[in-house]
Amino acid sequence: MRVSDVFRSTNKIIQVDGRAALRVAIRLMREHNVGALLVRSDGTCSTRLLSERDVIDALAARGSAVLEEYVDNVVPAGCISCRPDDPIHHVMREMTQHRVRHLPVQDGSDVVGILSIGDIIKAQLDTMSLENRILREEVILKQAGKC
Rank of each mutant, 00 (worst) to 15 (best):
M1C: 08
M1E: 06
R2V: 03
V3G: 10
D5G: 04
F7K: 00
F7N: 02
R8G: 03
S9Q: 01
S9A: 01
T10R: 01
N11G: 04
I13K: 00
I13M: 02
I14K: 00
Q15V: 04
Q15S: 05
V16M: 01
D17L: 02
A20K: 13
L22R: 11
R23A: 06
R23W: 03
V24T: 15
V24G: 05
A25E: 04
L28R: 15
M29E: 03
E31Y: 08
E31G: 06
N33Q: 14
N33G: 09
A36G: 12
A36K: 06
L37V: 01
V39A: 01
V39G: 00
R40L: 06
G43C: 04
G43M: 03
T44G: 13
S46Y: 01
T47Q: 14
T47N: 14
R48N: 07
L49I: 05
L50G: 00
L50A: 02
D54H: 06
D54E: 05
V55Y: 06
V55W: 02
I56A: 09
I56M: 14
D57R: 09
L59E: 14
L59P: 10
L59W: 14
L59T: 13
A60G: 09
A61C: 12
R62D: 07
R62C: 03
R62P: 04
G63M: 03
S64V: 08
A65R: 15
L67Y: 09
L67F: 10
E69N: 00
E69G: 00
Y70M: 12
V74A: 14
V74P: 08
V74D: 11
V75W: 08
P76I: 07
P76F: 11
A77E: 15
I80E: 05
I80G: 00
S81M: 01
C82R: 12
C82N: 12
C82Q: 14
R83S: 14
P84T: 04
D86L: 15
D86Y: 15
I88S: 06
V91A: 15
V91R: 13
M92L: 15
R93P: 09
R93C: 09
R93T: 09
T96I: 11
T96Q: 15
R101F: 04
H102E: 12
L103K: 10
L103C: 10
Q106S: 06
Q106V: 08
D107T: 04
D107A: 13
D110C: 00
I114H: 13
S116N: 11
I117R: 04
D119H: 11
I120C: 09
I121A: 14
K122A: 07
K122G: 02
Q124V: 14
L125R: 07
L125A: 12
D126N: 13
T127W: 08
M128A: 12
M128Q: 10
M128H: 06
M128G: 05
M128V: 05
I134L: 13
R136W: 09
E137Y: 03
E137I: 03
E137A: 13
V139G: 02
V139E: 07
L141K: 03
K142A: 11
K142S: 11
K142Y: 08
K142T: 10
A144H: 10
G145F: 10
G145H: 13
C147R: 07
